[in-house]
Amino acid sequence: MRVALPSLTSRPLRRWYATGRGATNASEDEIQAARKWLTKLHAETVPRDIGEMSFSRSSGPGGQNVNKTSSKATLKVPLDALLKHIPTALHPEIRSSRYVAPRSNSIIIQADESRKQNDNAHSCYARLHQLVVEAGRNAIPGETSAEQAKHVKDLQKSDNERRLKTKKQHSAKKSSRKGRGDD
């Protein structure tokens, strides 16, 4: 059974959010929609017909079986086909992935850990899923709980009070020197 990835419509981008690799230009609605989309995403929901799967002979040690079977799996997914299923907030992260081949404008994922074609094919789709999840982690800022926001506000307040106290002490020290002529 094939299940399509949930797709989102693109909207004009309104806000800058700092992320791990830079700033992403996305609206609050897009961020919320992308979070919701990512919670529904599972490795099984990645459509198997999104890309082209090919098999070839694996390299390296493994005895004579390596020379006989084509067990290495290579998944080639065109970026255009993948990005139309993914929220626009994740597009820059996906385009900067190490799996992207710029000349062919596609994502190429290879797996040859197992001696079985089927296991290697599943491994390719699992890596594609992991790529999308990682892009979501890097591109979408986490939600801040009310408790965490209060904690940060308290820390900022105490830091500001400490800074003002230090400035007053420094000012008092300077003003006490004015009368003596120690400058």
Rank of each mutant, 00 (worst) to 15 (best):
N67G: 04
K168L: 15
R163Q: 13
D183I: 10
L41T: 07
A172F: 04
S114A: 10
S7G: 01
D80T: 14
K174Q: 09
N120K: 05
G20M: 11
K72M: 07
V132H: 12
D49H: 10
G179E: 10
K178N: 13
D159I: 05
G60A: 00
M53R: 05
A34L: 14
S175Y: 13
H151F: 13
E30N: 09
W37S: 11
A135Q: 07
S175V: 07
R48A: 08
S123D: 10
R103K: 14
L8H: 06
K36E: 14
N67Q: 12
P6T: 12
N105G: 03
K116H: 13
V100N: 10
K40Y: 09
C124D: 00
Q110F: 01
N160P: 00
L8N: 05
E28A: 14
R2L: 06
S97E: 04
A4C: 04
S96V: 05
D29Y: 12
A23R: 15
Y99C: 10
K150W: 03
V46T: 07
I109F: 10
Q130A: 14
L75C: 05
I140L: 11
P141N: 12
C124T: 00
Y17S: 13
R11L: 03
R14T: 15
A89R: 13
E161P: 01
R15E: 09
V133E: 08
T88Y: 03
H151D: 08
T45D: 07
I109K: 13
R127Y: 03
Q117A: 10
N138H: 09
D182L: 15
L90E: 04
S27F: 05
A34P: 09
P92S: 01
P12Y: 02
S171E: 09
T24L: 15
A23M: 04
G20C: 08
P78F: 01
V66G: 01
A33N: 12
T74M: 04
H129S: 00
I107H: 04
H170I: 01
K167S: 04
R98G: 10
S114R: 05
A34M: 11
P47C: 01
V66K: 09
R163M: 10
R2E: 04
N25A: 06
V66Y: 00
K68M: 10
G51Q: 07
E161M: 06
A111N: 06
K153N: 02
S145K: 13
V3K: 08
S59N: 08
